[in-house]
């Protein structure tokens, strides 16, 4: 028994000397400096953007730029189109990827690498190249299929009210982000055991996915939705080249005639993005605090914020 008692001398932790205090203080200084630089880098442009929108030379402080947004020509149409495209892109991406990823994990794990490569391909195809390809197809398609039912299809997918071709392009572009996020969520689960346990409890395949798999992928699904939303909100190149006018294109177009309004819309879109992020994060937190697995997946939310902010800023 006595042998288990820690020795009275030599084992008492000594108080940190001045040298160790100095050593500990140094990282704190560096942390502060890095934090300050990061804050300046991210907040600086935003602060100056806000100042630019509310301060008019000769008039002083005014909220005219912001009040003018709501009445600006094309604002509501472009915003509606963007949100519709975002919703449809999220739905289609998840509908394509979730069943495919679950099926591959459960029945053909060897195909995982193939699925990963396929989903990552859009990363190596620049948006301009993708758009050039789509543009070429849209150009020769109607000529080649003039006397076939596909002719109407080519026309309908370019309907400016809801351009399906843009939706398809966005789904392609969101695949790499969505794949990584969902893959991280699936990796955190013992999917095979959970599915077998659910099946053993009498759940059919659809109910197994709906009642067991999806609730445990909640954080990953929300993160995928958020990343896709951010991508669609900030995407400019494809929409602009194909001649459609979602929100990002409208911001740029309005910037030519009214710079203050354009920047005000950019600031507003950042706020909108943050609000949506907070809503999604709150929705995720509703259950994630109850389960460590889901909260593990949810940890991806924080870094996402920065990515979205930059994306929207760059594109607007």
């Amino acid at each position: 028994m006595a042998a288990l008692t820690p020795p009275a001398t030599g084992a008492v932790p000594t108080a940190p000397g001045p040298k160790s205090v100095r050593r500990r203080a140094r990282p704190r200084v560096w942390r502060g400096a890095v934090g300050l630089i990061a804050a300046l880098y991210f907040l600086g442009p935003m602060v100056f953007s806000v100042i630019f929108t509310v301060k008019v030379p000769g008039e002083g402080f005014t909220l005219g730029s912001y009040t003018g947004i709501l009445g600006a020509d094309g604002f509501w149409d472009s915003l509606r189109l963007t949100l519709e495209l975002a919703g449809a892109t999220i739905a289609l991406t998840l509908l394509l990827l979730v069943p495919a990823m679950i099926a591959v994990r459960l029945t053909a794990p060897r195909l995982r690498i193939l699925l990963e490569v396929l989903c990552s391909l859009p990363l190596v195809v620049p948006a301009v190249a993708l758009t050039a390809g789509i543009g070429s197809v849209l150009q020769w398609g109607p000529d080649d299929f003039a006397n076939t039912p596909l002719f109407d299809t080519f026309n309908s997918i370019q309907n400016p009210d809801f351009p399906v071709v843009l939706l398809l392009a966005y789904v392609l572009m969101s695949l790499p982000l969505a794949y990584r996020t969902l893959d991280a969520g699936l990796r955190a689960l013992d999917l095979a055991t959970l599915v077998e346990a659910a099946r053993n409890c009498g759940a059919s395949w659809p109910r197994t996915v709906l009642r067991v798999v999806l609730p445990n992928l909640r954080a990953a699904l929300l993160n995928t939705a958020f990343l896709t939303l951010a991508l669609v909100l900030g995407e400019y190149t494809v929409a602009s080249i194909l001649g459609f006018q979602p929100f990002a294109v409208w911001i740029v177009s309005v910037g030519g005639s009214n710079a203050q309004l354009s920047v005000a819309v950019s600031v507003l879109s950042l706020v909108l993005t943050w609000v949506l992020l907070l809503l999604l994060a709150a929705a995720g937190r509703g259950r994630s605090h109850r389960s460590p697995r889901t909260s593990r997946g949810g940890a991806a939310t924080a870094p996402v914020t920065v990515t979205v902010t930059v994306t929207v800023q760059e594109n607007s």
């Binding site: 689960l189 013992d190 055991t193 959970l194 077998e196 346990a197 659910a198 053993n200 067991v212 609730p215 445990n216 909640r218 259950r287 109850r290 389960s291 460590p292 697995r293 889901t294």
Partner: peptide
């Protein structure tokens, strides 16, 4: 069935 790994539904 009771599985080798903990198979309770985490949510």
């Amino acid at each position: 069935m009771v599985f080798q790994s903990y198979s309770l539904f985490p949510h």
